[in-house]
């Protein structure tokens, strides 16, 4: 277990290094941030001063080295635009995005798994067909369009739910959270549902396929021969086997949930980091982009780690020591 964790940490560090080099060189090639940042009317002297202030006059490897030494001590540099530490800017927005993503994930699982089980147990029943039709819609309709329609329906016409912002938040351990106030939950509902829609469809399909496959297995027949009730067969024997592929896919998908959040955050004016990064890319705010991507890499590594741990809990055949090669 310890060696497994150590190896994972090592892999994460390597991924961070490779990614930072790629992004650094990539942004260097895309364009000169000074051209975007500085007032075109500035004198050559002012221009030169700004370039030197940001260290952009030095060769790229020297700039990278400066970034790297800073990063090791926890300083990812100041944002060109905001002139504040990039890491602080990201971390200030991170809770909102994570809250949105986790709520969407929870919605996807809470609705997707039961619906998938129903559709998998009686694939030909009208209800199952209705569920599958819904999942096709969830798959095919673009997220941003659904979001707009939801705003139209629930905020504009019905006036039930707010269309933008985060609402009232409560600080938990210094982190603002919407989930603990009614106003916050109301604000969270639409964007989370919007973000979850695609994932609900995915969970339904995965669960349905898993249930249909497992119900054919000999161990289900054997359980029936033992006189076990259908409820226990489905709820324990089948569901636990179905969870294995579900955890794998949802682990990967949780990452994309954070990425997709950019669109949803934009539509619902959700103050997450999605909006921040889009703006940063537009003005080549290198420290901010780097900080965002580094945090994303760390998050993906943590998610994968959690998935592997869950996997070993659900599937006794998996031993962590054997993985990661």
């Amino acid at each position: 277990m310890t060696s497994f964790l150590l190896r994972r940490t090592g892999q994460t560090v390597v991924a961070l290094l490779v990614m930072s080099v790629l992004v650094f060189v990539g942004i260097f090639m895309v364009g000169n941030p000074i051209d975007i940042l500085i007032d075109p009317a500035a004198t050559p002297l002012e221009r030169q001063q700004t370039i030197e202030a940001f260290g952009l006059d030095r060769p790229v490897w020297e700039q990278y080295w400066g970034f790297l030494t800073g990063a090791i001590s926890g300083d990812l540099g100041n944002s060109f635009i905001y002139n504040q530490p990039a890491l602080d800017l990201i971390l200030a927005r991170l809770p909102a995005t994570l809250e949105l993503a986790f709520t969407a994930l929870a919605i996807a699982l809470v609705f997707g798994i039961p619906l998938g089980i129903v559709a998998g147990l009686k694939p030909r029943a009208p209800l199952s067909r209705a569920i599958m039709s819904f999942s096709i819609l969830g798959f095919s309709l673009p997220t941003f369009w659904i979001g707009l329609i939801m705003i139209m329906a629930f905020s504009v016409f019905l006036g039930w739910l707010p269309a933008s912002g985060r609402g009232e938040t409560v600080d938990v351990l210094g982190i603002p959270i919407s989930l603990f106030t009614l106003d916050g939950i109301l604000h969270l509902l639409l964007p989370a549902l919007n973000l979850a829609l695609f994932k609900i469809s995915l969970v339904i399909r995965l669960t349905r396929a898993g249930v249909m496959e497992c119900m054919q297995m000999d161990y289900v027949r054997f359980a029936r021969a033992k006189g076990i009730s259908e409820g226990r067969i489905v709820g324990l024997h089948v569901l636990k086997n179905t969870l294995i592929p579900l955890i794998t896919v949802m682990g990967i998908e949780f990452g994309s949930l954070i990425a997709f959040a950019v669109v949803t955050e934009t539509i619902f004016a959700w103050p997450g980091m999605g909006k921040l990064i889009i703006d940063a890319i537009a003005v080549l705010d290198r420290p901010l982009i780097l900080a965002y991507l580094l945090i994303t890499v760390v998050m993906f590594s943590v998610i994968n780690l959690v998935v592997d741990l869950l996997y070993s809990v659900v599937d006794p055949r998996v031993r962590l020591e054997d993985q990661g090669e």
């Binding site: 000999d218 054997f222 086997n241 294995i244 599937d315």
Partner: peptide
């Protein structure tokens, strides 16, 4: 049943 590899639930 016939196949002992399949009759017990693996998880």
């Amino acid at each position: 049943f016939q196949d002992p590899m399949m009759t017990l639930n693996p998880v």
